[in-house]
């Protein structure tokens, strides 16, 4: 198939109104061999369900655009708020370079092309406004993507960290499946940053989390961040019910706690595979991944494993985790 495809980023679409933006110019300078196509509105390329997300994923393009509204969103009820009443998330990049076969992005967006919103000053303006309304805020940055892997395209993380540090009442989580996050975070003041990693058994990473770092690579990266004196968040999510999964996840837990420094684990969240049912239906139109064709039950429009299956498993996993980490540091979704 690869001989038939254009290489990734062979074309870059640029909204005319951001053609002279400093971030746009910086990104384009890194893709001198790419053909630039100027457009009026990113939705002309991105929108429309007459596209095949999975096929496009093999040859992603970049769309550089200006976000016009909805800069900061209320945190999703499908994500843990870690006991923060003011939970928000923000993305200035849509879509991911990784190719996880269960990812909700394939059901949420019509296109797998990467959209980069470069008017980050407006994001920062909205964050400032929100910071005045709440005592403490938990902000998840880059939820609709894996932000650290875009650092070579543009180092957004540094700019966001600088902004958050100006506002003392925001803790910003950045979550990744990469093995480069320690490089991204080095030499930065990250007192207000919660570095977080998603972890799964290597067997499931190979099967379902294509193009991501393998488990060992992620653990090494986590350890390096811990060695900087920083507490990390771990996320065993999504838990996939397949085969002898309890055994696999217990082996994963063993590996995590044998390798990492327990003192520098801030907390750990666990959650079963879950997805809005409407996204699941869209995902099935273009994906053959067996994981999305399970017999899910739908409660409040969210498709997930049947409650009975989850209850048995979760109790077993929590009991096992308790050997290594205090119960109050385990968050379940």
């Amino acid at each position: 198939m690869s001989k038939l495809l254009n290489r990734s980023f062979s074309h870059i679409y640029v909204e005319k109104q951001v053609a002279n933006n400093y971030i746009t110019k910086n990104i384009l300078s890194k893709f001198k061999d790419s053909k630039v196509i100027y457009i009026d509105d990113y939705k002309e390329v991105f929108s429309g369900f007459d596209q095949n997300f999975s096929i496009q994923k093999q040859s992603q393009k970049i769309i550089i655009a200006e976000k016009k509204d909805n800069f900061i969103y209320q945190g999703s009820k499908m994500c843990h708020d870690f006991n923060n009443s003011a939970f928000f998330y923000a993305n200035n990049i849509i879509n991911c370079l990784f190719d996880c076969k269960y990812c909700y992005l394939g059901g949420m967006y019509p296109s797998s092309n990467i959209v980069v919103f470069v008017n980050i000053e407006e994001f920062f303006y909205e964050i400032e406004k929100i910071s005045k309304s709440y005592k403490n805020i938990y902000l998840s940055y880059g939820y609709d993507t894996d932000i650290p892997i875009f650092e070579n395209i543009y180092p957004f993380i540094g700019e966001w960290i600088n902004k958050i540090n100006e506002l003392s009442n925001i803790k910003m989580e950045i979550r990744t499946k990469s093995n480069i996050f320690h490089n991204v975070l080095s030499n930065k003041n990250i007192d207000n940053v919660i570095p977080a990693w998603t972890l799964n058994p290597q067997k499931f990473i190979e099967k379902y989390e294509k193009k991501t770092a393998n488990l060992d690579e992620r653990l090494v990266s986590i350890k390096k961040v811990q060695d900087m004196g920083i507490k990390v968040r771990l996320s065993i999510d999504p838990i996939i019910i397949e085969g002898d999964f309890l055994k696999e996840y217990k082996l994963l837990i063993d590996k995590i706690f044998n390798f990492l420094n327990h003192e520098f684990i801030r907390d750990l969240s666990i959650g079963f595979f879950r997805i809005p049912n409407v996204y699941l239906k869209n995902l099935k139109k273009h994906s053959n991944s067996p994981i999305i064709f399970n017999n899910f039950e739908v409660i409040d429009s969210i498709a997930t494993y049947p409650l009975k299956e989850k209850e048995t498993a979760i109790n077993s996993l929590i009991n096992y985790l308790n050997r290594f980490i205090e119960r109050e540091k385990i968050f379940i979704i």
Partner: peptide
């Protein structure tokens, strides 16, 4: 063709460029 414009409507549409035909655009 990678982009097509209607002269009367002054509107553009963009072709999906996933596949490579080895032709200039």
């Amino acid at each position: 063709i990678n982009t097509v414009k209607d002269f009367c409507l002054n509107k553009n549409m963009y072709f999906d460029l996933t596949y490579d035909l080895g032709l200039q655009e």
